[in-house]
Simulated assay, not measured.
Amino acid sequence: MAKVLRTFRDAPSGRVVNPGDEIHPTPGRHEELAEQGLVEPPGAGAKAAEPPVNKMAEPPVNKAVTAPAEPEKRGPGRPPVRR
């Protein structure tokens, strides 16, 4: 499988391929297209990056809750009568 770098018409299939498409050329055809700069060179696969490091410190276990409690939600209409 080869990833296309530039737009060109693929002769065997007769279709126009765009950058980012993947085609399945024979090994000889793959080298020929790579020399012309149309596809990635053979053996050039996607390199996986390492996951990012989380630099934030963990919150302490005994930290007090600072967010206020949510008020009681009421439905639409008049407020209740207090007696």
Rank of each mutant, 00 (worst) to 15 (best):
R83D: 03
P41Q: 11
E31W: 07
T26H: 14
K47I: 13
E70M: 11
A44G: 00
G77Q: 02
R78V: 06
P52V: 08
M56R: 15
P25M: 06
R29C: 01
A11I: 13
R78G: 06
L38H: 02
V81Q: 13
A2E: 02
A11H: 10
A34E: 02
V81M: 12
G28C: 05
T26W: 10
P19Q: 04
P68F: 07
R82Q: 13
A67R: 14
K47W: 04
V39K: 00
E35Y: 03
A67C: 05
E35A: 10
L5F: 04
H30M: 12
G75C: 03
S13Y: 05
L33P: 01
R6S: 05
A34C: 00
P60H: 09
K73D: 08
E70V: 11
A49P: 00
R78W: 01
A44Q: 14
E40M: 09
M1L: 12
D10V: 09
P19H: 04
R9T: 15
A2F: 05
M1N: 07
G28R: 13
G45A: 13
K63S: 01
L38D: 01
G14Q: 13
A49I: 11
P71D: 06
A11Q: 12
H30E: 12
P52W: 06
V65P: 01
P12V: 05
R74T: 15
V39A: 00
T66V: 09
R9K: 15
P42K: 02
P41I: 03
E72L: 15
T66G: 03
K55T: 07
H24N: 11
K63M: 06
T7V: 14
A48I: 13
R82W: 13
P41A: 11
N18H: 11
K63C: 00
P25Y: 03
V81H: 12
P27H: 07
E31F: 10
V53Q: 14
G45Q: 11
S13F: 08
P79A: 15
A57C: 02
V4M: 07
A64Y: 04
P12S: 05
L5W: 04
G14H: 10
H30P: 14
L33I: 01
P27T: 13
P80T: 04
A49T: 05
N54I: 15
P59S: 01
M1Q: 11
P52K: 08
D10C: 04
N18V: 09
K63I: 02
E70I: 11
G75N: 02
N18G: 00
V81G: 09
V16R: 06
V16A: 00
V61A: 15
R29A: 08
K73Q: 13
M1F: 02
A46R: 15
V81A: 12
G43A: 10
R74F: 14
E50F: 00
N18Y: 10
M1E: 08
A34Y: 01
A2G: 04
T66N: 07
N62M: 10
G77I: 02
A46N: 06
P19K: 04
H30K: 09
N54A: 15
T26N: 15
E72I: 14
A46M: 05
R15K: 15
P12A: 04
V61C: 03
P80Y: 12
L5E: 09
A2Q: 00
G37N: 05
R9L: 07
K73S: 13
F8W: 07
R15H: 05
Q36G: 03
